[in-house]
Design a protein around this nucleic acid. Structure first.
Lengths: 216, 216
DNA sequence: ACTCGTATTGATTGAACGTTCAATCAATGG
DNA sequence: CCATTGATTGAACGTTCAATCAATACGAGT
């Protein structure tokens, strides 16, 4: 019944999901190639190998498919950390290891791709004038802070110091990512690797300092 | 001769400069009010109290006036530090003081204004697909790094450690600024003040750590 | 008062874009 | 083998916007 196959190997019920993902991929590709302003219904649908009308059919309009693409990016980031934590579920993950995983997730391959970097920047710029996107942005920003704070609390006794450590680390991750993205000369991962290294070094210095306990 | 006054108090030769600045101000105001996408020739010229044609006359087109507005922002940032250093020229400015000045400049009032924050984000997003803007971005990004490195070199003996300190501080400044801007709920300066505090605390911790000298 | 030159206007144009919807067609069900 | 579904198309439409340019306003010089 639901398992009946079409000749192209697609289940009828799956077509919608498949098309939506194809259009989201095409949207990210278009933003990568032509920029946010240069992305139109035509560039997206052409990259997807479909007609222009299909976008309104599945997403209600251009605004819809772009919002969906952003949600996809946010979801990738969220799942990235979940998967990595899951991978180390057998053994016990120390607070320090967990912090390193958070850093690695934020500098993972997908987050370095052109389509992702360009879209993130456009997303932030648009979030300042679009309440729906602003809400998504805030949730995402909060998640990074909370994840960091959770681990820092287990490493730093003083609550205020733990909060400061989390805020600093969040800023350093975002700042490193931003500067790496903007200064990406050709297609070198060098900047991202260095950024990841420095973020991890910073976390270790925070832990080491707090080990010496009593400051301020 | 050149000092001849018009009835409105403007020098003929100055009219062009005055009009250009008025249009740049109007452009920033429009981006603040309507966003980057919502900014058109009409919104700018209306805010400036002039007609739409004037933009093409003075800037050759919309692209021209927007580029000029971005250049103005970059110049403000550059001059901000110069002025502050100049203010303390009489007495000797210690390397640490100079670092704090750099932080203060990046969180100065003008950089917190809506018109500036929105334009910065739009500028970054556009820089990824516009070579002219990308060049401006790189120069600006480099300046922050160089300024920081110059002072850190006087405080940290190991060259590699000084370079890392500068890179980390640059990222923290940009990251703190970004997160403050994006999470600006209503119109609270609270986030910016906290960001400035943490950046300064971070610099002090870098200096203190290097004082203990020999690490790695 | 009159003219010249510059500054400015704003209606108009043409291109670009998002949306709509009647028509098409392959895949299903009977 | 015919009827029905619904996924997909793409031309047409209305809107938006940057750019243009002929017309106008206005100060300066005589």
């Amino acid at each position: 019944m639901a398992g009946k196959q079409l000749s192209n190997g697609l289940n009828r019920a799956n077509i919608e999901g498949v098309r939506r993902q194809q259009l989201i991929d095409a949207t990210l590709k278009s933003i990568e190639l032509y920029g946010f302003q240069g992305t139109t219904i035509v560039t997206i649908s052409k990259l997807a190998g479909m007609s222009s009308g299909i976008i309104s059919h599945y997403f209600g309009g251009k605004q819809g498919v772009i919002e969906a693409a952003v949600r996809y990016l946010l979801e990738q980031l969220k799942q990235g950390l979940l998967l990595q934590l899951q991978a180390g579920q057998a053994r016990q993950v120390s607070p320090r290891e967990r912090l390193m995983m958070i850093v690695e997730t934020n500098f993972a391959g997908f987050q370095r791709s052109s389509s992702a970097t360009v879209t993130w920047l456009a997303f932030w710029a648009k979030a300042m004038h679009d309440p729906a996107l602003a809400r998504l942005q805030r949730v995402n920003s909060q998640r990074l802070s909370s994840n960091l704070l959770y681990s820092f609390r287990q490493l730093i006794a003083d609550p205020a110091a733990a909060r400061d450590a989390a805020a600093m680390t969040a800023a350093m991750i975002d700042g490193m990512w931003l500067r790496s993205t903007l200064n990406l000369t050709p297609a070198t991962d060098e900047a991202f690797n260095e950024a990841e290294r420095l973020c991890k070094a910073f976390i270790d210095s925070l832990i080491a300092t707090s080990g010496r306990a009593d400051e301020v």
